[in-house]
Amino acid sequence: MNNKPKLLFTSKSAPLILKAFDKGIDKNGLIIENSTKEPVLTPDNEEININEFGGLKKGSEIFIKDNLYSIMKLAEGKI
């Protein structure tokens, strides 16, 4: 059994999740590092718009899109 906690957020509270990790959103809606203003990347080296932000996983910070491909990889434990 998976004993790890899980936190479910809403699209409205997504910026709060980003704030907890010192991330922000640029003028184009891309999620960025606040310190460098560089876009964060998914494991497939894709930039993420806030509208397609699926979540975050440890390792150290793995950003996940909310599409089926990312969900499949997450369910399979491949990200």
């Binding site: 699926g54 975050l56 996983k57």
Partner: peptide, 28 residues
Amino acid sequence: LLCLIRKVHSQGGILFNRDKNDVLESFK
């Protein structure tokens, strides 16, 4: 709240968008 979010993450838990959680659970 921010500490709580970071704590879930540091414990290896996932932070996930509620709108897509049903699909994730269906896939699992």
